[in-house]
Write a protein that binds this DNA or RNA. Structure first.
Lengths: 194, 194
DNA sequence: CATGGTGATTGCAGTGACTGCAGTGACTGC
DNA sequence: GCAGTCACTGCAGTCACTGCAATCACCATG
């Protein structure tokens, strides 16, 4: 018999998600989450540096690594944005598909909490940075890399937003491709008379 | 003789800027800032909802209002992204050009403080939201509005990044137009074989 | 079996951000 | 003059987060 129940971090995340859904993010204290997971408040902060982290978790890091690796590994003849799309598709297939249910719950809480939304957007900046770095490794110049990375992040965000909608049943991979097409239409319709 | 020294908020901002430069953001307490401005800690929080706000101030709100108003006021026949570009150009001319000096001190502190950096990047979420709302007022459907707003934010960020570079002497307005052209090239080069 | 190291967990005391509330008193409109 | 407003203040309290020392099942070693 182990001294402690296993998977403390996972129990904390689950407890947090449930409590946030019931009472909102601000209305839930770290001590409450810990208690529901059968742990102490101190232990909560041993696992998550801040209260925010219990929502964002380790998935973000995994996602980031998957995307950047896949960008570097994309066929040499792929255009920059194609390489990014390749990375996003890989992530969609390998990481995100497993977490759809969890993602939807998470998304609902984040969208309902301005503080978390801002934090979420901050994370995107890290993603853009990482993608831009990966593109530079493919020989893309810095300005184009940054812009392409930004476009990729926008595509991911828009597709993800549709994907996590309750009524959605289209696979993320299709939504990504579809969103790229939409973006092309939007950009081409701009006359650039500026 | 007035009962209180005037411009309490301004004094607090100035005190905060100086103390942050001397001791760093984390090493400065709200009480310290208030004391240096000849006010109480309680008054600090009457003027700024959070410690962050004393850095970000009202400029962000002004920028946001300028952009959204200008989007709504753009010619009816303009495409969604053209309307956004119109908004960005207006903001470039009317707001951003004025705040160069203060922005420098601010930028240095923000860049030196990871917590503030994330916050700064997070402000973009609010911008995207506001732009999307303005576009919906023009009759753009929700998904396209979101995607267009995201594209606009990416363009602004990329152009701003080039604009604030030491060696730059191109006006922001030109950089915005140039960045849109780059984005079009990037998107059109994606083959969408996904 | 004894001994000692490891590591997840915990309590406790403390700091600092932030809030709600109940004032206080120079200024303002009447 | 007189009531009302409004910027500011003190106080008590909550909650996020930290540093430190202690606990104790588990594990490796002799």
């Amino acid at each position: 018999m182990p001294r402690w129940e296993p998977n403390a971090a996972g129990r904390l995340q689950e407890a947090a998600l449930t409590l946030f859904e019931q009472q909102g993010y601000a209305g839930t204290t770290a001590a409450e989450i810990a208690a529901r997971a059968g742990l102490s408040e101190r232990t909560f902060f041993n696992h998550f540096a801040t209260k925010h982290e219990v929502i964002f978790g380790a998935t973000a890091e995994l996602l980031l690594r998957t995307i950047t690796r896949s960008i570097v590994a994309a066929p040499a003849e792929a255009s920059p944005l194609d390489a990014v799309m390749h990375g996003l598709q890989t992530a969609a297939g390998n990481v995100l598909d497993g977490y759809q249910a969890l993602s939807a719950r998470r998304r609902q809480i984040i969208d309902a909490t301005p503080e978390l939304r801002e934090r979420d957007e901050g994370k995107r900046a890290g993603l853009i940075d990482a993608i831009a770095t990966a593109l530079r490794e493919r020989g893309v110049d810095a300005d184009a890399a940054f812009l392409t990375a930004g476009a990729g992040a926008v595509i991911l965000q828009a597709a993800d937003s549709r994907w996590t909608r309750p009524e959605n049943d289209t696979p993320l991979s299709d939504l990504l491709a579809d969103t790229l097409t939409s973006l092309r239409g939007i950009v081409e319709a701009a006359t650039a008379l500026h």
